[in-house]
Design a protein around this nucleic acid. Structure first.
Length: 504
RNA sequence: GGGCGCAUAGCUCAGUCGGUAGAGCAACUGACUUUUAAUCAGUAGGUCCCAGGUUCGAUCCCUGGUGCGCUCACCA
């Protein structure tokens, strides 16, 4: 046990055992979802159990309001909450055991559905069973679990102690479900590709490294599923998607978690224009399904996710917000210095384009409300995208922004093996710590077998859920966000460890 | 990683212009058959995050550390 366990509750467990009552019985009880009772109550529209009928409910009990010969308490399950009423007269033999009950216990209650004098729907108990005795006291009843860190560390408490938390995750689940149905209806096949990659490709990010003992080889946790999914397009699957947990060894912020979920999809015979249409259609669909309308509120502002979204060209935005052409290297460097960005002394192309994009991001991104497509990125910052046939300086790529946050990234996929190889070699040579360490030769070979023209799209599911559920931090849409390691004091574990040390 | 802020009872917080501390809730005891954060009476509960420094004296001031939050950078 840990120091969370309250002595008075442990004493109750001992008392129950002494009385021959199991505080952790093996079987639950067959109970109705509480919402059915609460909403139904035998009316014509909602044919739940009638007032006066016998019902059974099971759930976590809240604060006990004890009147001596009468106890009221709320009982909550996943579906809702109802009041239970325990009366001495109806629980004669059991009545003395009411002292075993504590806030937070799991109870099964059988009784008659009725009302109190104040008109509160109540299950008047004729039988009460402790289904699981809680030794850790629940959070304070007024404030709930307020400590941010504890909310994340003890999400299992946060979920029932704080209103609305479970609903956010139910919505998230629904987003994934809707996305799957949406894509399946359009002929996409859900696939699963490796999480362990010999080369960390498909994005620029620092990977996590791990080691396979039998192969005696280092492997990387994937930073993106992209290159595998495109191999499947080569393989003729034509329309594939994956809900991919990606891992990036980077900082943590309100928008970043080291592991995050991305939807990636690829569609043969499509290009980035199709991806735009698909994106805005999907976003509108999700908004409508989740909230009934297309307008969502996020961080105190509203955004209309009704398609079509505005389309703004990268070069135009650059000109407008930075004030010079993105190819004018001297002017861009001057702007970078103005903004206090670190201007690299090296004069190579890779460094210039990184700088140019930094300038763009610092000048443009937070100016964007959205939803908006930023389109036609400069080719040098798009190693996996196809060039625009009319102007090869730009790639057929777009990103979607809502509330200053990048939600999606898509392009017409580069399928020329020679050009792809050239860009890989360039990346590897760039010395960028976030670039892959070696050329993915197998991927180039895949392209040599021929990939049809295809559009690809990646959507940050966590961020999308932030927008759709109006949560400011990515941590609030992740059940268990990554936190610094933290040793919980486990008194029993210490005892075991001490015993082991003593024995050894 | 940089900057800013916070750390006091189980929880949420107040407080001490430097003299080792308080409220509400929770717990415990008692009363109460109609509460909705029940009420009433009482009891108990503190390494004031840790270490060092200044001081007659530090929870308070200073330095360092730890943890957390916010923010910047990077990205999705």
């Amino acid at each position: 046990m840990t120091d969370l366990a309250a002595p008075e509750r442990l004493a109750k467990i001992a008392a129950m055992r002494a009385a021959g009552v199991d505080p952790y019985p093996a079987r639950g009880i067959d109970a109705a979802p509480i919402a059915e009772l609460a909403a139904g109550a035998g009316t014509a529209e909602a044919p739940g159990p009638k007032i006066g009928s016998q019902v059974a409910v099971a759930g976590r009990v809240g604060v006990l309001r004890d009147f001596g010969k009468l106890v009221f308490a709320p009982l909550a399950d996943r579906s809702g909450k109802i009041q239970i009423g325990l009366q001495r007269d109806k629980l004669a033999a059991w009545w003395e055991h009411r002292k075993w009950l504590d806030a937070g216990d799991h109870l099964g209650v059988r009784g008659e559905l009725g009302f109190t004098k104040k008109g509160e729907l109540t299950v008047w108990a004729t039988e009460v069973v402790i289904l699981s005795k809680t030794v850790a006291p629940p959070p304070e009843k007024w404030h709930g679990l307020a400590d941010q860190e504890l909310r994340y560390r003890r999400r299992y408490v946060d979920l029932w102690a704080n209103e609305g938390v479970a609903a956010v995750f139910a919505k998230r689940s629904r987003v994934l479900s809707l996305v799957r149905r949406f894509l399946e209806a359009r002929g996409f096949l859900e696939v699963e590709t490796p999480t362990l990659h010999p080369i960390a490709g498909g994005a620029t990010a620092r990977p996590f490294v791990t080691h396979h003992n039998a192969l005696d080889a280092d492997l990387y946790l994937r930073i993106a599923p992209e290159l595998y999914l495109k191999r499947l397009i080569v393989g003729g699957l034509e329309r594939v998607f994956e809900v991919s947990r990606n891992f990036r060894n980077e900082g943590i912020s309100v928008r970043h978690n080291p592991e995050f979920t991305m939807l990636e999809l690829y569609q043969a015979q499509a290009d980035y224009r199709h991806m735009m249409e698909l994106t805005e259609t999907l976003f509108e669909h999700l908004a409508r399904e989740l909230s009934g309308g297309t307008v969502v509120e996020f961080r105190g502002k509203t955004y209309d996710l009704k398609a079509p979204f505005a389309r703004l060209r990268y070069a135009d935005l650059f000109q407008r917000h930075v004030g010079c052409d993105l190819h004018d290297r001297d002017a861009v460097r001057a702007k970078a210095r103005e903004k206090g960005l670190e201007v690299p002394s090296a004069d190579d192309d890779a460094a210039y384009w990184r700088l140019m994009n930094d300038v763009f991001e610092s000048a443009v991104e937070h100016e964007l409300g959205g939803p908006v497509f930023i389109t036609d990125y400069p080719t040098p910052i798009c190693p996996l995208a196809k060039q625009n046939p009319a102007d090869p300086r730009f790639a057929e790529r777009f990103e979607v922004y809502v509330g200053g946050m990048e939600l999606a990234n898509a392009f017409s996929e580069l399928n020329d093996p020679a050009e792809q190889e050239r860009r890989f070699v360039e990346q590897v040579a760039s010395q960028d710590p976030e670039a892959p360490g070696e050329v993915d030769v197998d991927y180039v070979q895949a392209l040599e077998y021929g990939m049809p023209p295809a559009g690809g799209l990646g959507i940050g599911i966590d961020r999308l859920c932030m927008v759709l559920t109006n949560q400011d931090s990515i941590r609030d849409v992740l059940l268990f966000p990554t936190l610094r390691q933290h040793k919980t004091r486990a008194t029993a574990a210490e005892t075991v460890a001490d015993a082991g040390a003593a024995a050894g």
